[in-house]
Each structure stands twice: as structure tokens, then as C-alpha cells.
Design a protein around this nucleic acid. Structure first.
Lengths: 138, 138
DNA sequence: CTTGACCTTCCCTTGACTGGAAGCCCCATG
DNA sequence: CATGGGGCTTCCAGTCAAGGGAAGGTCAAG
């Protein structure tokens, strides 16, 4: 299989597949003409990576997950711990974003949004807040 | 005011303040010794930027917001539109993360997390899913 | 005079790719 | 046999919003 086929079948861009080789996540063979030559196992790994990335795992976490996957004597507890840590990070991000959403929603509701210059959103950003609740979140 | 004071008072790292000057968001004067010399207006702008960034606006959005802030004849509708677009993006991100959270939570719940190698999380990532609901999200 | 804190510029690194240029390789058509 | 097009290769640069650190100038205190 050439990279184009693998790209189609895995859903990953060819660029991304080359990048994954660069950073040592996969090691496809080469044909005589220098083309990368993928076997089913490579495709399988790429699919694994694609799914892990879609779940938000970082590349380094993916590397660990792959190592665990290939280690027949792994402890499922190690995998679970990795997944739990990742879950915590995701939940923290969600909380951050929800806080932003709340503040923004309030501000948007307070703004007339017409052709007049008076704007509570800008006032808030400038620190001349008219809303009692709003605080800066570093 | 030197950069250290401004950093303390604005809560932004000195590096960030220099960066903001680099990209033209602020234009502090210089003292004879070459040190940046900030006035209250600069501090004010930096606080504005800090708050806008804390709400997740990109640097370019901040640039627009600052321009609107400084434009006495702005229409609050323009500000509101910017904020609304940003709000949409935040909501989209939250939705993505929530989908990840759901999938991960399920997977974590299915995993015994002990010393045995059998692991539904890895199975799912490998595409040998045991959960009927799980699908790959590009 | 020296020490230490503060400031300057400059360049490199981050994460996870993406874009583009320059140049092979291979197959099919004229 | 030339040529055209698509696919493949490598390498370099850019993204976003800074952060790290080196090399060196400045200033106030002791």
C-alpha cells in the first residue's frame, strides 16, 4: 500500500502520516523506488492513533497507549489511569470554557447591538464593569 | 513605569507585554536608557487585553475589540456580533469536549483497572469495540 | 567597586500539524 | 519516444500565543 491508499483507508491526511513516521509512531517499510510501503499492521496502528487523537489524547499519550497496546503483559490499571488523567484535563477545559460562555452570554445579553456606540461588552473589557458578578480569570 | 511594574499591575508576564508590543497591540514610549516607559493608558490597554484573552478571544479579535473600543463612533452591534461569533466557537468546543468526555467516561467505566492485561479502552482504540455506541469522530 | 535586580534584544522551542516548492517515479496516451 | 498528469519524495516555513534562556546593558544600594 502506498501512502495515498493508507490515507484514504485511515482517514488521516498523508501529511499527518508522514509526520507520525517522523516522530516515530509508525515505521513503514520502503519500496525500491523510495515510496513508503504500508502493511495492514501499519494501517491498524494509524487507525488506533486516529481514534486516540479524536478522543483528545496528546501525541505523547498516544505513544504510551500504543506501547501499552503492544505490551501483552500490561496492566489495564495503567491504561485506565492514563484515561482518567486525560478525562480530568478534559473536564477542566470544559469548566474553563463554560465559565467563558457564561460571562460572554451575560455580556451579549446586556448589549443592545444596535448602531449606537454605547456597549457594555467593551465597558466590561475596559474594567468599567456594570455587571456586579464579572471578575477577571487569569 | 517600567515593564516590571506594569507586569505586576496588569497580571501579564513581561514576556507577554513585550510580545504585545511586537505585534503592535501597544506602543509604549522609551526612556533614554532604552527601557520601555509605560503610562496609565498602556496599563489600561493591557488590562483590556488580559480580560479579552481570558474570555478566549484570539489576538486578532482582541485587536478588533481594541479598535472598536477606541472608535468613539462604533456601533455596539459590531461588538455584539464579534462576541456572538466567539460565543458560537466556544459552544462548539464545549460540545466537542463533552462528546470526548462521554466516550471516555464510558470506556473508563468498562475497564477493570487492575493488573490484568484485558482492557476495553485499548480494544476500543484498536477498533475492536465492545461498546455498541462508540464511533470515531474525525 | 561590586553585587544583584532589572532591563534589553535575539533566537529557539512548544504541539500537531499544514502548505508549498522542487524534484523523482510511473503509467498512459499521442 | 515524448509528454503529461498524478502520486510520491524531501525539506523548509508557517501557524498561535507565547515561554525559555543567553548575552549583555543599566541602575540603586551597600
Amino acid at each position: 500500500m502506498n501512502i495515498g491508499d493508507v490515507s484514504t483507508r485511515s482517514g488521516l491526511p498523508a501529511k499527518t502520516i508522514r509526520y507520525y513516521e517522523d516522530i516515530g509512531l509508525i515505521k513503514p517499510h520502503r519500496s525500491n523506488n523510495g515510496y513508503r510501503c504500508f502493511v495492514e499492521a501499519d494501517l491498524h496502528k494509524l487507525a488506533f492513533l486516529g481514534r486516540a487523537r479524536a478522543l483528545g489524547f496528546t501525541i505523547e499519550e498516544c505513544r504510551l497507549l500504543m506501547a501499552l497496546y503492544e505490551d501483552e503483559s500490561r496492566a489495564s490499571g495503567d491504561v485506565k489511569q492514563l484515561a482518567l488523567e486525560h478525562l480530568r484535563k478534559i473536564e477542566a477545559k470544559i469548566a474553563d470554557l463554560q465559565a467563558m460562555r457564561e460571562t460572554l452570554t451575560e455580556l451579549v445579553q446586556c448589549c443592545a447591538g444596535d448602531s449606537r456606540p454605547d456597549c457594555p461588552i467593551l465597558k466590561d473589557l475596559a474594567g468599567q464593569t456594570e455587571l456586579p458578578k464579572q471578575g477577571v480569570k487569569a
